[in-house]
Computed example of a mutant assay.
Amino acid sequence: MRIFLAGATGVIGTRLLPLLVAAGHEVAGMTRSAAKADQVRAAGAVPVVCDVYDADALTAAVVDYGPDLVMHQLTDLPDDAARLAESADANSRIRTEGTRNLIAAAQAAGAKRFLAQSIAWEPAGGRGRVIQDHEAAVLDIGGVVMKYGQFYGPGTYYEGELPPHPRVHVDDAAARTIPLLEASSGVVIIADAA
């Protein structure tokens, strides 16, 4: 399967990319950082340097690759968890404008499948509506919403401790995503048993 992975150099994307390649898929890994293109190439994928907010460039990149499936693993989160509150608007923009642009690009390319990450808990503040709208947009096109628990493990906010439930080790989250490439449209919770 030809897969366009948006968010290939993020916390889960870096784990998904080699799993997808090892499973025999042809993968284009999108990153907005030219400095990370070599990381994508080293994982065995075609690097695509593109900003999800540049709708024309994004559509051109996805159409050019011609994927069977587009996977949305984009977030806009800070490296420091203490800065989460101040970055909430940026992450909400990924879930609104970013999702809209990626869906439009996938449709323009004729991709038959669309998978997108979401969260398995109720977000703080007024961001719940953003999450609901994001998930509804994915389901409206027959996509799959992957609602991940809070990640823990290397490179996450919880490297040495467990977050509250729902939670999932980031490596387990990536491994549990692979079978969903063929899943029927709907919502899937990816979390440890409570």
Results as ranks from 00 to 15, higher is better:
R95Q: 13
E122I: 15
H134C: 06
L180Y: 06
G29D: 00
H72C: 09
P164H: 14
D64Q: 09
F4C: 08
R95D: 08
V21M: 09
V188I: 12
R83T: 08
Q117N: 10
A137G: 11
G155N: 07
Y158G: 07
A108M: 05
H165T: 15
A109N: 02
L102C: 05
V48H: 02
P78L: 08
K112V: 15
V130Y: 07
E182W: 11
G153R: 10
I190T: 02
G186E: 04
V170N: 01
G125R: 10
I3H: 00
G44V: 04
R2P: 01
A55C: 13
G110W: 02
Q73D: 10
G160L: 14
A23V: 07
E86N: 09
L77K: 04
H169M: 07
A43E: 06
T59C: 11
Y65P: 02
V187S: 05
T9G: 01
L17P: 02
V46P: 00
I3A: 01
N91Y: 11
M146G: 00
I189T: 12
H72T: 03
P164C: 11
M146E: 05
L181S: 08
V145F: 06
R41Q: 14
A105Y: 00
Y148I: 02
A88P: 02
T99C: 09
W121Q: 10
R176P: 00
G128D: 07
A82P: 03
A183I: 06
V187E: 11
A124D: 14
D64C: 03
A109F: 05
R127K: 13
W121T: 11
D172K: 08
L102R: 00
T99R: 06
A60W: 03
A175C: 04
T156G: 10
A85F: 14
A90N: 15
M146F: 07
G153C: 08
D172R: 12
G98F: 12
D79K: 14
I119K: 05
G24V: 12
D89T: 13
D80F: 10
V138F: 06
G128Y: 10
A6T: 05
L5Y: 00
A104G: 10
A108F: 00
N101R: 13
A60M: 09
R167M: 02
A42K: 14
A55I: 09
D51T: 13
I141L: 15
L74H: 01
V52L: 15
A193F: 04
G7V: 09
L20S: 03
Y65N: 04
P18E: 03
L77H: 02
Q150W: 08
G186R: 07
A106V: 07
G98L: 10
V49T: 10
A82C: 06
G13T: 02
G142Q: 06
V70R: 01
P154F: 14
C50V: 14
A111L: 03
H72Q: 13
V145C: 11
